[in-house]
Design a protein around this nucleic acid. Structure first.
Length: 534
RNA sequence: GAGGACGUAGCUCAGUCGGUAGAGCAACGGACUUUUAAUCCGUAGGUCCUGGGUUCAAGUCCCAGCGUCCUCACCA
């Protein structure tokens, strides 16, 4: 605890801007009254609660006991409010008798409250679900009922009570004892509407998670996907490592790095832009199946598909090639879909994607011809086609021109999932060429809805060729756009002998986007980069 | 980095031709022991993003700035 926050304790109106009308004042006043009752408004440990989701599944333990002692089941309840059962009617049809249900303890955030005389209905929510509490003055007693009068939306409370069903057929905890767990001083967003302003949703992700439907689930799914990816790889004998995030040479990709500085060493450092070069050093060192799943940082533009820091998976398998990586990619994705409990046909906006394996596999040239009608081996035809699209072709390498056409005319059309294989070698400097065709690189990219999800190679392990490629600027590219950043130690590592290997990169954020039907990357990153709050 | 849109109560949003700042929810007071976006009666709540300018008069028009979003550019 800092000195500043101690000061704030004695000074109710803290430096945080919270003077929105009387709303906060009213909540602070209730906090005071809770304290006056000898209750800590910030609560304490609360053991033995049952997750609301688990409580809901215990509906079948609720029985109706007739006067002769026989127990009968309740009628089937419906989640849909339109189909609520009239339990008052049902009870009079089956009565006389009483309802009996299990004793339960729950805790959660107050999402809705409805007063009705000496009665209060409270909907609370924990991370497994939502349930209604019935709080009657007669049932919980004068003291607890007064306490309930000090509840605000957003407060965290605990309850002991019996599970039952109300007259309108809703599964409900009939409160016997209330516990105050934490006061919410800040007012929540409008109920049911929630917080829709995308800026506020990102800046105040805690509010977004707590009050907006589906947000918590989406991030829980992200966690399941990440966990599944790790599990799939572990099952296949891969080991996870943690490479350095501070690099003295930002290599392994063509991207501008963030620059930082180490004071004691007086050293300029770069945040890593890729995981590749250190993982390959580990291949040399004998880690035959190795991967890292972690953050990389690229000092570039922000868009619905780009955040400056994002999560990347890179996998390297000794004695494999890009074909073995293709099978692995498919397995990773199939397992991840199953981990989220979904079927292989996933919604994407108003469209769908069918991930039923095996995914289509098509060559780069095949697709090029299919979508442009131009023979990819005819340099003149490709060049004049690029001209007709308005691309600058002057003095540029034909493969660079071809790839611009590919990105413009083909990629967006790839609904996928489709593995695009066998790229022009000149645009893939870290890739081994085909044994029978040195112009073709053993590489694939996986596309879904025009998004590049995965990228894999048969890795280049010839140290002399690697050194040459580092030094050769790719034709038509500026120095800062080139990936030719010499890493002498990496070349030295290759000279010690890196096994022939397959290497794979998967953009985890984009994978999560696809599997959670999220059209922007900011929906799957908890705290995307924003300018500081004005 | 370029272009466009947006910024009004805690939240979600109206605001006409430049003429007294509006609603719903939330809040506050009251009624109600099976409600469920509870309902009903009443009350209060504003740095109209910020700063200039035009005007008798600016939430509204003009300029600059800040922030977000979209498109593009950058992007293995």
């Amino acid at each position: 605890m800092t000195e500043e926050s101690n000061v704030n304790e004695s000074n109710e109106a803290s430096e945080v801007q919270e003077d929105h009308g009387s709303l906060v004042a009213a909540r602070r006043e209730k906090k005071r009254q809770i304290e006056e009752r000898g209750i800590d408004p910030w609560g304490s440990r609360f053991d033995d609660r049952i997750l609301i989701g688990d409580i809901r599944s215990r509906l079948d333990e609720v029985k109706f006991q007739k006067e002769d002692g026989t127990l009968i089941d309740l009628p089937e309840l419906h989640e849909d409010p339109e189909q609520r059962i009239n339990m008052r009617q049902w009870r009079s049809d089956n009565g006389p008798g009483t309802e009996i249900g299990p004793q339960v303890r729950a805790a959660g955030r107050i999402m809705l409250q409805r007063d009705k005389g000496k009665l209060r209905f409270i909907d609370i929510q924990d991370w497994s679900g939502k349930i209604q509490l019935f709080v009657g003055q007669k049932q919980v007693g004068e003291s607890d009922f007064e306490l309930a009068g000090l509840f605000d939306l957003g407060d965290l409370i605990g309850v002991d009570g019996r599970l039952g069903v109300t007259n309108t057929g809703e599964l409900t905890i009939f409160a016997e004892k209330l516990h105050f767990l934490t006061k919410s001083i800040e007012p929540p967003p409008a109920k049911h509407v929630g917080m829709t302003d995308p800026e506020l949703r990102q800046r105040r992700r805690y509010v977004d998670l707590a009050y907006n439907d589906g947000v918590l689930d989406r991030f829980m799914n992200r966690s399941k996907i990440v966990q599944s990816v790790r599990q799939t790889l572990a099952n296949d004998g891969f080991v996870e490592i943690e490479g350095p995030t501070l690099h003295s040479i930002a290599g392994g990709a063509a991207a501008r790095p963030f620059i930082t500085h180490h004071n004691a060493l007086d050293l300029e450092l770069y945040m890593r832009i890729a995981l590749e070069l250190h993982l390959k050093r580990l291949l040399v060192g004998g880690m035959e199946r190795v991967f890292e799943l972690g953050r990389v940082y690229r000092n570039e533009g922000i868009s619905p598909k780009h955040n400056p820091e994002f999560s990347m998976l890179e996998v390297y398998q000794a004695y494999g090639d890009y074909q073995s990586m293709m099978d692995l990619t498919e397995q990773v994705i199939v397992d991840a879909i199953e981990a989220t409990g979904q079927s292989f046909v996933l919604p994407w906006g108003d469209k769908e994607v069918d991930f039923t394996p095996p995914f289509a596999r098509k060559t780069y040239n095949e697709l090029f011809e299919q979508y442009t009608g131009v023979d990819p081996s005819d340099a003149n035809a490709v060049s004049s086609y690029a001209d007709s699209l308005g691309f600058d072709t002057n003095g540029r390498h034909i493969d660079v021109i071809k790839n611009e056409v590919f990105e413009a005319k083909v990629e967006d059309e790839l609904v996928g999932p489709v593995f695009v294989t066998d790229y022009p070698a000149s645009i893939c400097p870290l890739t081994k060429r085909k044994a029978d065709d040195s112009d073709i690189a053993e590489r694939f990219e996986l596309f879904v809805h025009g998004m590049e999800i995965a990228n894999a190679y048969t890795e280049l392990n010839d140290p002399d060729l690697q050194e040459e490629l580092f030094q050769t600027q790719l034709e038509g590219l500026d120095e800062e756009d080139s990936m030719a950043k010499m890493d002498n130690d990496f070349v030295r590592a290759l000279r010690h002998g890196m096994p022939p290997a397959g290497g794979l990169g998967i953009g985890i954020d984009r994978l999560v986007m696809l599997l959670t039907n999220s059209q922007t990357i900011r929906e799957v990153i908890l705290f995307p980069l924003l300018r500081p709050e004005g």
